[in-house]
Design a binder for these strands. Structure first.
Length: 551
DNA sequence: CGGCGCGGCGCG
DNA sequence: AAAGCGCGCCGCGCCG
């Protein structure tokens, strides 16, 4: 008899690992020496859905031993989703506080860095008894709900596998190319730490300001120096500076660009984060309340486009870079079942369609209008254009407007698959209640309205950003399985990077076209999984090359 | 010295 | 241009 579930945990009395095989009830339990565990898993990697407390605690060792599994349930991640969802009563899960643990960012445990990433690193129970107990609690909850939460927990768990596998594989990174870019932008390294072009540019700024000693790295000092030179800005941010006309501005903006590159992704970053030609960031699935991933260390999700050229395939391999055009509007059209919006988006640039249909005048306006709709702009160019979308796509706008209203009223909203936003804080509720008092001051009233609108913008965006994250998880989950079936057994194409609506796949050259097709097929499958037969598509921009610079 | 808030800026 | 959402990381400056 083949068990559906294989629950993995530590033997409380020894160094052994226990696997409890389950269907409707426990079938048997197997005790394994640690050293035998990877081989045992490898022999039945696709036979079970592997259940464990935390993918970051169990999977890296398997990967190091060359073992990949097909499916899992990550109890830590699923606990958080089921505990908070508004669609099923999960009282038993809410009581299990020892599972309320945020991501263990050092889970890989072999992070080759100089510094520990300073995020709390709690751990969920490892022991088999408590692991089985939590598995049973989640199973009972999932049995009482519809397919959506089962889809979501499966997708979230698949994301955990992808994250561990991508960290294991790393993003191929060409140090020489990165250094070439640094030298071209910043000049040569000097003993003092500041590269030559930065030193020269700083001197030009000081010259133009008539202040030979001013610090350019201290915001208050720089602001005072600008004022003394007659540049009356309120901040030193680049967009405010860019509006000024003064000889110091051009070199100052150049200095700020260089300073940013040096501190965020300079030589120090290279030493710390790139080893053996691989950048290995820590990905944190479910790290954002909306369900998006976060990252810790290395700034994986903020790599500047400037450095794209340093992402370089191994010899004989290629990189397949793919991103979805206008993911969030498409997801909104799908979740609202807004046929007009889906039609405008079909197979092409949604923003161009809005211009053609004379909903707005220019593509740029279309973009601002859509951002305003998703983020809740009320003022400026963007806020002015939103009503046009409301007239053109009442169903889609109805979904985000309703989410905003619910949030303003202190209610909960959820994504398509049931991930639910956090409740309003006690402080938020207190401020709202104070505003209903008979003797409320105008200030209190204003504060309450402002906080209510803030929360409305959050819940408005939550439903779309969160459902887009679900689409992306479904895409990743399907793609990792398709890729594993391509290429030769010892060198299949693999995911190397993921950023909200974009993937980079590292593939043997002969498998690159097939990988590109797999990426497209997975996008189609994700659309079907979330939106069924509703005719919304998710066209991709796909580029195959030796680097990750998009065509 | 470490912790923390802030301004600033990179990404979607 | 930002605006309006979600992040992480840097350096500075202040505080204990």
């Amino acid at each position: 008899m083949t068990a559906t579930w294989a629950v993995v945990g530590a033997d409380p009395d020894s160094d052994a690992i226990v696997v409890a095989l389950w269907d409707d009830a426990e079938i048997e339990s197997v005790r394994l020496a640690r050293a035998d565990f990877p081989g045992w898993v490898a022999a039945r990697a696709a036979a079970h859905r592997w259940v464990w407390g935390d993918t970051t605690a169990w999977y890296p060792d398997l990967l190091a031993a060359g073992v990949r599994i097909e499916r899992c349930q990550d109890l830590r991640l699923c606990h958080a989703i089921l505990r908070d969802t508004m669609f099923v009563d999960a009282t038993a899960l809410r009581a299990a506080h020892h599972w309320d643990i945020a991501a263990d960012v050092d889970g890989g445990a072999r992070v080759p860095t100089l510094f520990d990433v300073d995020v709390p690193t709690g751990t969920v129970p490892r022991e088999i008894g408590e692991t089985v107990a939590e598995f049973v609690r989640q199973r009972d909850v999932l049995e009482r709900t519809d397919a959506r939460l089962r889809l979501l927990t499966a997708a979230e768990s698949a994301g955990a596998l992808v994250a561990a596998e991508m960290r294991h594989a790393g993003l191929p990174w060409n140090v020489a190319e990165h250094e070439r870019i640094l030298t071209a932008e910043l000049g040569t390294r000097t003993a003092g730490g500041m590269p030559s072009k930065m030193i020269e540019t700083a001197a030009r700024v000081r010259q133009a300001l008539g202040d030979p000693a001013v610090s350019l790295d201290s915001q208050p000092k720089l602001l005072r120096a600008l004022h003394r030179a007659g540049v009356l800005v309120e901040s030193t941010s680049k967009w405010e500076l860019a509006r000024q006309t003064h000889p110091a501005i051009e070199p100052l903006l150049a200095y700020k660009r260089m300073s940013r590159l040096l501190s965020a992704n300079g030589w120090t970053w290279l030493d710390e984060w790139v080893h053996d030609g691989r950048f290995r960031p820590v990905y944190i699935p479910g790290g954002v309340v909306t369900g998006r991933w976060a990252s810790a260390g290395g700034g994986a999700l903020q790599l500047p486009r400037q450095l794209r050229a340093a992402v370089r395939a191994d010899p004989g391999w290629q990189l397949v870079t793919a991103d979805v055009a206008q993911l969030e509007p498409r997801v909104l059209a799908g979740m609202a079942r807004d046929t007009a919006m889906a039609t405008a988006a079909r197979g092409r640039d949604l923003y161009a369609s809005l211009v053609e249909q004379k909903i707005v005048e220019t593509r740029q306006e279309a973009k601002y209008a859509m951002l305003g709709a998703l983020y809740g702009s009320t003022s400026g160019e963007s806020g002015r254009l939103v009503p046009r979308l409301r007239r053109a796509f009442p169903r889609a706008m109805g979904v985000v407007d309703a989410a905003a209203k619910t949030g303003e009223d202190g209610g909960l909203v959820a994504t398509l698959l049931g991930r639910t936003c956090p409740p309003a804080s006690a402080e938020w509720t207190r401020v709202q209640r104070a505003a209903t008092d008979a003797d409320v001051s105008p200030g209190e009233e204003r504060l309450a309205r402002s906080r209510a609108r803030e929360r409305g913008r959050f819940t408005r965006n939550f439903v779309v950003q969160g459902t887009a994250a679900e689409w992306a998880l479904a895409w990743l989950a399907d793609l990792r399985l398709r890729l594993a079936r391509l290429g030769s057994d010892d060198a299949p194409p693999h995911l190397a990077f993921f950023l909200h609506d974009e993937v980079i796949v590292h593939a043997p050259a002969e498998a690159a076209e097939a990988a590109a097709q797999a990426i497209r097929d997975s996008a189609d499958a994700a659309g079907k999984l979330l939106f069924g037969d509703f005719p919304i598509d998710f066209p991709l921009d796909v580029t195959i090359g030796t680097d990750a610079v998009k065509a």
